[in-house]
Design a binder for these strands. Structure first.
Lengths: 349, 349
DNA sequence: CTGAAAGCGCTTACAG
DNA sequence: CTGAAAGCGCTTACAG
C-alpha cells in the first residue's frame, strides 16, 4: 500500500470489463445499451452494470461514433458570440439537447464567409449529428453546403427565403407592427425606421412589418424615412439616425430594427442636442440585457431568445431522429415592453 | 447523366484515396501529415495531395483521435454563458485555439456542482485534450477531479487558492485599489464595499484590495461598510446596497465588486430616493457592455476579458504541448474608466 | 522511402 | 440469450 490512490489505472475499456465479469464484450455492449439490454439475461445484465460501476467504466464515445456514425454532438453556429442576443439562444439549445445526451459545440462564425465554410466543414468532419445555424442570410450558400452533405439543419433567429430548412424565429413582422402601433397610438405621425441589413431575414421582415403597419395606421412613409444599417451595431445605429434626421427633420419617432441600433440612435440624438423622448421617441427590438437601465429606459419588443433556442433544439431532435416531414417555420410571438423612451409627440412638433 | 449532382458518393476515406493514387494507405497518411511528409518521396506526396484535393478527401478526426488519443478538442466551462463577461473570454479562447487547429466545445456549467462533475466527465470521455475552466471557486473539488485524470487545465478569470493549476486573471486587488484611490481622490471618506462571493477568487481578492486601499488612503473601514453579495447579479447588488446604507447611512461612495452589483446599487438608490452621484458615488468592475449607456454612465474598472481568454488559451497550448513547468498565474492589468457615476461628495454630506 | 499488420474501443449483423 | 468476427477510419511501430 504505497499510495492510497491508484495510478490512473490504464483506463478500463469494454474488453477489460467483459473479462472481469467473464462474458464476451458484445454482451457487455448490449447490457449497457438501454435499447438492447432486453437482449441479455437479467441477472447477467445486472452483474455487468454492477461491475461497470465498480470499475468506473466509461464508454469511449469516439469509438462508438466511429462505428455507428452518430456522434451525439451538435454544432451551433453563431455570427458573433459576443452579441448578447445569442447567449440565451445557445443556452436554450444546450439545455434541451443536453437532456437528450447531446453535447453542443458552438462555433463563432465571424464575418468572412470563407471561414464560415471551413468551420462548417470542420464540424461535419467531426460528424456532428446536426447543426443549428444562427448565421444564415436570406439566401445563404453555406446552407446549401450543409444540406448537400445531408446534415440535419435548423435555423434560429433567422430564416431562409427559400424555406430550405426549418427555422425558429420571432414573428418579426408582428413585432414591428407592435412597435408602430404603439407609436401611432401615442399620436406620432412622422415615424422613421432604422432598418437592419436587408440580407438578413430579421432586417427584411421587420422593415416589411414597418411598412405594413404604417399603411394599417394610415400613416405615410415619408421619403428618406427608412434608413438601412449595414450591421446591427451602435455605430451603424448612430450613422443611420443622423442620415434619417437629416432627410426627415420633422420625424418625432423612430422604430429601430434592434436594440443596438436604438442605442446608436440615443447617441445620435445626444450629439444633435435632442432629447429622447421629448423630441424623438425611440423603440428598439429584442429587449437585450440592460436596456431597462439605459437612459431613458428603452421601450422595446421582447423576443424570447431562450425559447427560440429550445424550440430549435426540439426541431433538430426530430430531424435527427429521422423525421422527414416538411420544412417547418415556427414563429414565436413577441411582446411589446413599454418603458420611458416613448411618449406622445410634443404639440410644438 | 441523370443527375448533375452525384449522390453523396459514399465518403472517400484513406483507403479509397490510396487506391486511387496506387499507394498504400500508410503512405497517404504520411503524405498528408505535415510532420511526416518528409518521409515520403516528394513526387509521390505531390500526387497524393493532388488526388486528395480532387476527390475532396476529408480525414475523419474521430478515427484519428481513437488511434492517437488526441482529439484536438478543448472544453471550456463557464458558470453561465449568459453572463456577458464570459462571451469575450470564450471568443478569445476559441480564436487562439482555432488558429492551432483546435475546436472548442463550451459547456454551461450551471449551478449544481453535481451536474458540473457530470459535464466534466463527459468532456473527458470525449477525450478533450485540455480544459479551460471559468467556473472554479477558490477551493473547488472539480479541479481536483480534472487533475486526477491528468487533463491539462487552466483557469480563467478565477484562480485557485492552492495554485493547483495555472490561471489567467485580472489583477483584482489592483483593480479595486484603482477604484478606491479614485474615490478617495475625489474626497470621499465614508466608502462602502459591495463584495462578491468570498468563495470566488474575484470576490475575495477585490475585497482584500478594498481593505488594503482603504488603509493606504488612511481611510477607516466603517463597521458594516462591507456587505457580501451571494451572487454576482443585480438583485443581490440591490439587497446588499440596502443593507449597506442601513448600516452606514453616512456613506458617500460605494465600490462594487462587479458591474451587475453596481447596477443593483443604482436600483437601491432609486428606491431610496437618492441620486447617483449627487448622494452616493458608485464604481463598478469589469466594464461590461452597455454600462457606458446606463444612467448615469458607470465609472468602472475595465478588465480585458478577451485578452484573458487569449492568454489562457496560450497557457493551455503550452500545457497540451507537454510543457511541464511550474503552475503559472498571469494577472492582466486593469484600467480605471471614469464616467459619470462618481463625483466629489456634497459638502452637506 | 514504402508496405503490411496491428490496434485504438466500440457495435452489430451473423450463427448457434 | 451469447459468442466470434468483422469493421468504422485512421496511425505507427516494424520490416525491408
Amino acid at each position: 500500500m504505497r499510495s492510497p490512490i491508484a495510478a490512473p489505472a490504464s483506463r478500463v475499456n469494454l474488453k477489460r470489463l467483459a473479462d472481469a465479469v467473464g462474458v464476451h464484450p458484445s454482451t457487455v455492449s448490449r447490457a449497457l445499451d438501454p435499447a438492447k439490454r432486453h437482449l441479455v439475461a437479467e441477472d447477467v445484465a445486472e452483474r455487468i452494470v454492477q461491475a461497470a460501476r465498480e470499475l468506473g467504466y466509461r464508454p469511449n464515445p469516439l469509438a462508438a461514433s466511429l462505428r455507428t456514425r452518430r456522434s451525439r454532438l451538435v454544432g451551433v453556429l453563431v455570427p458573433d458570440i459576443t452579441n448578447p442576443v445569442f447567449s440565451p439562444i445557445i443556452s436554450g439549445i444546450a439545455a434541451v439537447l443536453g437532456a437528450e445526451g447531446y453535447s453542443t459545440i458552438v462555433a463563432d462564425a465571424g464575418q468572412e464567409p470563407e471561414r464560415r465554410l471551413t468551420l462548417i466543414d470542420d464540424l461535419i468532419a467531426r460528424q456532428v449529428d446536426g447543426l443549428v445555424m444562427a448565421t444564415v442570410s436570406r439566401d445563404d450558400p453555406s446552407l446549401e453546403h450543409c444540406l448537400a452533405q445531408g446534415v440535419p439543419v435548423v435555423l434560429v433567429n433567422r430564416a431562409d427565403d427559400h424555406d430550405r430548412a426549418s427555422a425558429v424565429v420571432s414573428d418579426d413582422m408582428t413585432g414591428m407592427q407592435l412597435a408602430v402601433a404603439h407609436l401611432a397610438g401615442l399620436g406620432h405621425r412622422a415615424i422613421g425606421h432604422l432598418a437592419g441589413p436587408a440580407l438578413l431575414s430579421t432586417g427584411h421582415l421587420r422593415r416589411l412589418g414597418f411598412e405594413v403597419a404604417m399603411v394599417a395606421n394610415r400613416l405615410p412613409v415619408l421619403p428618406g424615412a427608412i434608413v438601412e444599417a449595414r450591421a446591427y451595431d451602435r455605430d451603424e445605429g448612430e450613422r443611420a439616425t443622423l442620415a434619417l434626421i437629416k432627410a426627415v427633420p420633422q420625424i418625432t419617432a423612430i422604430a429601430a430594427s434592434n436594440d443596438l441600433l436604438a442605442l446608436g440612435a440615443y447617441s445620435a440624438l445626444r450629439s444633435l442636442g435632442k432629447e429622447c423622448p421629448q423630441h424623438v421617441s425611440i423603440v428598439g427590438h429584442n429587449d437585450m440585457p440592460l436596456v431597462d437601465m439605459v437612459h431613458p429606459p428603452l421601450t422595446t419588443v421582447r423576443i424570447g431568445p431562450r425559447d427560440m433556442g429550445c424550440e430549435a433544439a426540439k426541431l433538430l431532435l426530430e430531424r435527427m431522429g429521422g423525421a422527414t416531414g416538411a420544412v417547418r417555420r415556427v414563429a414565436l410571438q413577441p411582446e411589446l415592453i413599454v418603458r420611458a423612451s416613448t411618449a406622445p409627440p410634443r404639440k410644438s412638433a
